[in-house]
Design a binder for these strands. Structure first.
Length: 481
RNA sequence: CGAGGUGUAGCGCAGUUUGGUAGCGCGUUUGGUUCGGGACCAAAAGGUCGCAGGUUCGAAUCCUGUCACCUCGACCA
């Protein structure tokens, strides 16, 4: 047994350091997360990948409910006239809308957009539903898929159709809407850090980067292992932009007709891409325990021997009773070594080996995926031991990612330093004008932008990544996905 | 849409320069021995060489066209 060493296995995935893109593609295909669909720019999410999404939905939904939101479902098709109502919004989305032009064999009188996002539908209904200040706020969320005809696509990061959640709320006052916008940004941040183990920066985006039709857009950005920024969630404050376009008005306590203030916020399956590109290593995935479809895999060793399988099944039942997601790999068609490597590639956080020697000693041999550390856990009370190991793995993943990001975050006082830093990671710098920022990131700096002064005063803590205008003057710059 | 690259067995590739029987590794199937870090032996199956034309006695190989995918830009969650 075991003539081939692990080096040989590792070479099956393109080394991360050599070609990060190829590594990403290798990992998602070889770990059974997705397959390429034979449909333009779309992917098939396989059971293991979809399992992650289900857990994300569960965790997020609980947070939405806790902040007073309810789930709804709106149609996938949007009449063109509805989409055209808010000028800035149309302009922003027009290049990437897919249209339905025929019903059966008949050409439609009005073409229907396949939703790229549902602001217009929500607005249309809100206009009917709202009469009085008593009806406000309305805080709805929907889980669905949307379609955007992207020019180039990559699984999870950018596909034509993608799964997401979109929250849409309307409020009586500007203050309330702003509070909602920031609250949901905080919900996202807390979720990213505490559930996905993704350290993120949150902040406001620049006018050029903001959502089409929004007064203000906020986002959370994570650093991938190639130093690029990935937007993992975004919230928008529309003010009364859409309310005015769609006539969403209510009668206030004072008897005045007022426009509502609206927000929207969304996160998508892209978060799965963020997990992969943040936590993955040379062996493949490292799933953050709280969204790992399989948290513990039990590998019976020498399972043909008497009593081993029975004990393994009992162990599985015990761990499941403790609330853990457990897989028992009792396939006898693969050797133990083969299975070790497969589950490591799939990123299962904890592996429990259970063989005759373990059973004899009353223990299971545990291996944690984050550090490859092996230890013996007493079978007696093993549920708690595994749970605390999972918590520890979560924290290790978070701290590793944070240390990586911090080490690649530079401070720049001039354009040269900014340009240089952006090649490797994030750059913290004072706001120096939108044109100059973009130029720096895209290596197309010209003389006029280069001469714009860096403002060294005022360094607020809430800042944003990727060419965003912060609430104050400090911001982060990075190449973005 | 601009620039570059790749299409040969399920997967990864060689063969193309200089035209001459379609190859290799992994995987798969069958039988046996194994089983605590991708086991070994033996046998077998599997390909209209992306597609369409052309040149030629003969094309994976040369010519023309076309399609798909990948990387980098532009656009975006």
């Amino acid at each position: 047994m075991g003539k081939k060493d692990n080096q040989e296995f590792v070479t099956q995935i393109t080394p991360r350091s050599e070609d990060f893109s190829q590594w990403y593609t290798d990992v998602i295909l070889k770990t059974d997360l997705v397959d390429y669909a034979d449909v333009r720019g779309c992917m098939v999410i396989k059971p293991y990948g979809y399992g992650i999404w289900e857990l994300i939905q569960q965790e997020m939904d609980a947070r939405f409910k806790a902040t007073g939101h309810k789930n709804v479902y709106f149609p996938m098709l949007i009449p063109e006239s509805l989409l055209l109502k808010e000028a800035e919004h149309v302009e922003g989305f027009a290049p990437e809308v897919a249209w339905v032009t025929h019903g059966g064999n008949e050409k439609l009188q009005e073409r229907l957009a396949i939703r790229p996002t549902s602001e217009t539908l929500f607005c249309n209904m809100y206009a009917k539903w709202v009469q009085s200040w008593r009806d406000l706020p309305m805080k709805y969320n929907q889980w669905c898929s949307v379609m955007r005809w992207e020019k180039s696509t990559r699984p999870f990061l950018r596909t034509s159709e993608f799964l997401w959640q979109e929250g849409h709320t309307i409020h009586a006052t500007a203050e309330e809407a702003q509070e909602e916008t920031l609250q949901m940004l905080e919900v996202y941040r807390e979720f990213a850090e505490n559930v996905l183990a993704l350290p993120v920066y949150v902040g406001q985006k620049s006018d050029k980067e903001k959502f089409a039709g929004a007064r203000a857009t906020y986002s959370m950005e994570a650093m991938m292992q190639d130093g690029k920024a990935l937007q993992a969630g975004t919230t928008h404050n529309f003010g009364t932009n859409f309310a005015e376009a769609f006539g969403i008005q209510y009668l206030s306590k004072e008897g005045q007709l007022e426009f509502v203030h609206e927000t929207s916020w969304g996160t998508s399956t892209r978060m799965i891409g963020a997990i992969i590109m943040t936590h993955g290593d040379e062996r493949g995935l490292r799933m953050p325990p709280r969204v790992a479809p399989i948290q513990v895999v039990i590998l019976p060793i020498a399972q043909h021997k008497e009593g081993v399988l029975e004990r393994a099944r009992a162990l599985k039942a015990e761990l499941e009773a403790a609330g853990l997601r457990v897989e028992l790999d009792d396939r006898d068609t693969y050797s133990a070594g083969w299975k070790f490597n497969e589950w490591e590639m799939k990123g299962v956080p904890v592996r429990l080996e259970l063989g005759p020697r373990d059973i004899e000693a009353g223990v299971a041999t545990a291996m944690r995926r984050d550090t490859f550390e092996k230890s013996q856990l007493a079978l007696d009370g093993i549920g708690d031991a595994v749970k605390s190991m999972l918590d520890s793995i979560h924290h290790t993943l978070f701290e590793q990612a944070k240390a990586f990001r911090d080490a690649k975050t530079y401070t720049a006082a001039d354009m040269d330093a900014l340009e240089k830093g952006v090649q490797d990671g994030f750059v913290k710098a004072s706001w120096c004008g939108e044109r100059a920022c973009e130029d720096a990131i895209k290596e197309k700096t010209n003389a006029s932008s280069r001469n714009m002064p860096f403002d060294q005063s005022g360094m607020p803590s809430d800042v944003c990544v990727c060419c965003g205008k912060p609430a104050g003057k400090l911001m982060y710059f990075a190449k973005a996905y």
